[in-house]
Design a protein around this nucleic acid. Structure first.
Lengths: 168, 168
DNA sequence: TTAAACCAGTTGCATAGCGCAAGCAGTGAG
DNA sequence: CTCACTGCTTGCGCTATGCAACTGGTTTAA
């Protein structure tokens, strides 16, 4: 994770920003798992991120402009992490990653169902989901109609036998 | 780059396969730069990959089923690396990476033009490009009509002042 | 026929990043 | 006052990366 730029190629610059094993995991949990606090991100991660790695990634992602950090008014020590517009625009990329992984790698059905729904939903569904993220993370008005996030959570719950809420 | 699986989530599995700083660079050069030999990949890389890292990534990518390796009949010591179908299906993901990088990171114009063309061309153009890759790397018949690869190379050449051939 | 150039890597070594476990100061509830 | 909870930090060993030099073999050219 050096900070020197290797080249101005868009692929390379994207790799330098999110091309490691943890950054996108953190963004995924913020995006689909709706985890907003350090401890939530730490404890509920499927992959078991270490606290120092999480702290480092949160710091880097805030510096890179992908996350923002704010105080929780209900608790002086709590920090709330939010996705920025820059991170919300990663949705199509993340959907493609999910689609490719689902097709070529040994995924677990209950963890793959959301990737499947988003892939089948196409760009309209991605846009709707991005608008919901803007409402939750940026304070934009929540779009009317049924929520994509609810559909994803329901599909996950149906397969995993849990109540809605959502693990990635 | 450990080999233990952290979770069955499609995002995570994709990250475990290509989520590092070099794997996609190698695939990009094979895909857009049409480099097929070790020395070509080593010397002509914008980012300057080290020979031991390149050797390691080629080995891993072959093991992961993303590349195949064959002898060059014209030279006993030459090895030819080819993309597999699995790697060719990364095209939409790579296009999304390029699109995001171009929009949010300080890219160089001549290196970004191909990302722009592919983004604007949409899924039809991606499919056409994937068919061309199948012809070049898998021995499938080359589709008729103007080549996407030629358009990309021409656009790059026009901006960089070089003759066609193509740096990523 | 012999030297030079080219081929795909390998090796040694220093540095940087990762992963685990434990610890820390401040905060809020009972 | 105590105890659990907050977002981290520290120490330590291990792995991965990056650089430079090198290897054994092959082909080309003088």
């Amino acid at each position: 994770m050096t900070s020197t730029i290797r080249s101005g190629c868009p692929i390379n610059l994207t790799l330098e920003t999110i091309g490691d094993r943890w950054s996108l995991i953190v963004i995924r949990d913020l995006m689909f798992g709706n985890r907003r606090h350090f401890r939530e991100l730490l404890a509920a991660s499927e992959e078991g991120i270490a606290s120092n790695i999480l702290a480092d990634r949160l710091k880097r992602l805030v510096e890179a402009g992908l996350l923002s950090k704010a105080d929780d008014p209900s608790h002086k020590q709590k920090a709330i992490y939010s996705l920025t517009e820059k991170a919300i625009q990663l949705v199509p990329l993340i959907v493609q990653m999910g689609a490719w992984g689902r097709r070529h790698l040994p995924t677990t059905p209950e963890l793959a169902i959301r990737a499947q729904l988003l892939e089948e939903g196409g760009p309209e569904m991605w846009d709707a989901f991005m608008d919901e993220l803007r409402a939750v993370h940026l304070g934009a008005p929540m779009p009317s109609g049924p929520r994509v996030a609810d559909r994803l959570a329901a599909a996950y719950a149906a397969l995993s036998g849990e109540q809605a809420g959502g693990q990635p």
